[in-house]
Nucleic acid binder design. Structure first.
Ligand SMILES: [Mn+2]
Ligand SMILES: [Mn+2]
Ligand SMILES: [Zn+2]
Ligand SMILES: [Zn+2]
Lengths: 120, 120
DNA sequence: GACTTAATTGCGACTGAGTTGCACAAAATT
DNA sequence: AATTTTGTGCAACTCAGTCGCAATTAAGTC
């Protein structure tokens, strides 16, 4: 029997490396960078980034760049904005709907930067 | 007579390099990266980035990172969000107020990513 | 104007997150 | 089992941005 991550749409094999990445993202309350998790990973960083790219193509995860020049990854869930503190760099998932009146645009990602309650 | 960029708060000398950067930013309708303007600049890129850092300390300009891993700069004006198209990478200043209910947070920057009217 | 000095600059070397080429390994297909 | 496709480790690479340092320049004082 073929083991796949998303049998309906995907042709990705469910490898040890992929399971490890998805497992870690699954257990995190906020987006993570490669730096954040490299010590928990046995795979090479090229493998990590290549799998991240595949996951993103499949719509399994989302990512964005922070002000620290790193990319942050999380499993795709219901759309929500992210807050990045410019002082402590902490990233938080914000569960406010924040609708914009931008008819002609497709919004995929909202990032709010500023100072968190601790840092201001 | 002392020539300063912002006589009240700044100790920055008004050099040719600084005038050139501010002049270019002043005439742009949207944020620019170093890449965007390097051909119009005579200064070294180290000089450019060092001056950008000073301007930012002084609150003269704002910046943010796009998905293309470049930083974009613009003169500080009335607060507004930016839209970045994930397909064509075009950056637009959005003049919608978009208020969030985030009492304890200080919002300095809002970036919306998605697909622009042309690309979706 | 000429003199002084701290701020600014150009240059080249460096950094570090992310990417790529390639040969080898593991699945899947026949 | 042989072939084809997909995934992996390793090392080399890319490229926006940074840094150390010696040379230059803006601005204050005479
Ligand atoms: Mn989130
Ligand atoms: Mn703007
Ligand atoms: Zn903070
Ligand atoms: Zn577009």
């Amino acid at each position: 029997m073929k083991k796949e991550i998303n049998p309906d749409t995907s042709s990705l094999k469910l490898t040890t490396a992929r399971k490890a990445i998805l497992e870690i993202l699954h257990h995190s309350k906020h987006p993570l960078s490669y730096e954040d998790i490299k010590n928990s990973l046995l795979m090479d960083k090229a493998t990590f980034y290549r799998n991240i790219a595949k996951f993103e193509e499949e719509g399994l995860i989302d990512s964005f760049e922070s002000s620290d020049k790193k990319r942050y990854f999380e499993l795709r869930k219901s759309p929500h904005a992210h807050f990045i503190c410019k002082v402590c760099q902490k990233i938080e998932c914000m569960n406010l709907p924040c609708t914009f009146e931008m008819e002609a645009y497709t919004i995929e990602n909202v990032i709010i930067k500023g100072k968190c309650p601790h840092c201001r």
